[in-house]
């Protein structure tokens, strides 16, 4: 088993929580992991990305090679496209469709959608709407993780257990909302990829 995953988003969207959940789940599943992330100045509303590498064999590099990522998982559509050089042939791109427009000019949404349409394996979901359905727009990151979960290579119950672990210091209600967001995101993903 070997999965190289690029996580992409904007500072403040909870990308590092996604990374923490995958890391925790991988650890509990007996997998080896390397997970590189960005801290500091770059986090202030700027681009945030993380390289997550899972394997049952030793992993050497903390960074993913160009053209070798199995999955790009993004909390923002433009940010998903920023890392296409990392995607391997046949790789999957799962992204939140709702743009985060803190730059001007921001590219047209039609253009972004058109670029996604050229990708053989992709899934755009409205993670904000689904998160609100789960109880709070703040769990959009867990919706995105849920939508990407069929491609992560870790059983979903391990990911759910990891969500409980990572958010263990929070209110019960917050944990439930995040679990609900994850499961709605996963359902949306299975529905979409099942009917494709």
């Amino acid at each position: 088993m070997k999965k190289d995953i690029i996580l992409a988003g904007v500072g403040g969207q909870g990308l590092l929580s996604i990374a923490a959940v995958i890391g925790e789940a991988a650890l509990k599943s007996g997998l080896l992991i390397k997970q590189a992330e960005v801290h500091g100045m770059a986090q202030r509303g700027g681009v945030v990305q993380s390289h997550v590498r899972l394997s049952d064999k030793p992993i050497y590099s903390d960074l993913i090679k160009a053209g070798s990522a199995d999955l790009i998982l993004a909390t923002e559509p433009l940010e998903a496209l920023r890392y296409l050089t990392f995607l391997k042939e046949g790789g999957m791109v799962v992204a939140n469709s709702v743009p985060f427009k803190n730059v001007d000019p921001y590219p047209g949404e039609e253009e972004i959608r058109a670029r996604f349409e050229t990708l053989p394996h992709h899934l755009l979901i409205d993670a904000i709407a689904i998160a609100k359905e789960a109880g709070s727009a703040l769990c959009a990151n867990m919706v995105v993780l849920g939508a990407g979960s069929p491609f992560v290579g870790i059983p979903d119950d391990a990911l759910c257990a990891a969500i409980k672990q990572v958010f263990s210091g929070k209110d019960k209600k917050i944990i439930e909302t995040n679990l609900k967001g994850f499961s709605l995101g996963r359902e949306a993903s299975l529905d979409a990829t099942g009917t494709n």
Partner: peptide
Amino acid sequence: VARALALPQSDGLTNPSILVPRPPALC
């Protein structure tokens, strides 16, 4: 490292021209 050692590499897909930088900003 792979390039310097002349090892075969994959380039991945091309990033789209519509990409704009997203510099950090005050919150």
